[in-house]
Amino acid sequence: MTPRRELLVGSVILASGVVGVVGTLWLQGRGIGRTETEVHVLVSDVGQLAQGNAVKFRGVSIGRVGPIEVEPAGDAVRIHLHLVGEFLPAPDAGVVLAPESLFGDWQAEIVIRSRFPNFAFYEVPPNRRIQGGVHVLGGFTLPDLSRLTAVADEVAQNLAVLTDRFDKAFSDETAASLAQAIDNMEELTATLKTVVEEESSQISGTAERIRIATEEIASTLTAARSSIDRLDAMLASGRVDSILDNTVAITANFRGVSGDVTLAVDRLESTLTSADSTMARLSRIAARVEAGEGSIGRLLVDTTLALRAGDLLEQMSSLLDDIRANPRKYVRLSIF
């Protein structure tokens, strides 16, 4: 055995060892001489996730799934995630286990739990969220494709049952009824056609009226548009400013008038006070008149007095008429 052959044998053995170890580590996704962060995930079920599957964060592959083991209590499964570099999970971070493609490869994606309110993430007790310096996150596993397929199969079966029932329900009798219904529909259609033809003239008149109304509306709109144009022009020419100035002056006048009104109201209050006292006095006089006191009271109470007064007035009236007719009879003018 020559030294050269010994060297060759040793080189081949070492080369194969290096290829085996380095290749295995590389295929496992483990870096040699680079920092790694380990994060644990607790889930109730891992689906089809397997060691070596990708770990993603915001869609970027950041590591590999490590060993998967059932917790000693049997209530959960613990997944070891080997992440490349330093990684500090957010306080409300969780992990969603889901198929990466339709071909059986799964992935573990680190997500913010609040983004998925409908996912029932495994609740890690607060005292277990950091164990031995390793962060423990709660996970949620999406249904496996086989489960979805099972549901689809169930739906397909229900559909088959429905089709079968439909086949049974659609008998000759049903077909005859359907044919009868179609005949009735034809009759109904013919009737409707007649009605429509009859009503078409009325509809034409209505359409004409609508046309006229539309034209009127159009002219109104034109007028409105011209008004708006004028308003625009007015706004542009500054006439509004003068109107506003006038409004200010009118407001000032109103303010003055309001002061006068206030004064008048004050005066009116004193007048009303005087009126109240006058009315009180009138009430007292009226009471005395009703009681028959004074001349007016006696006149009202004593009816003969009133009649005699009436006679007197008639006599005075005839006397005045006589004086107008014969003034010389009653008036004599003499000078010296």
């Binding site: 290749g23 295929l27 496992q28 397997a50 070596g52 490869d105």
Partner: peptide, 11 residues
């Protein structure tokens, strides 16, 4: 593809 289904037990 090489890594995705790799299992160390294969070696």
């Amino acid at each position: 593809g090489l890594k995705i289904f790799f299992d160390p037990f294969d070696v």
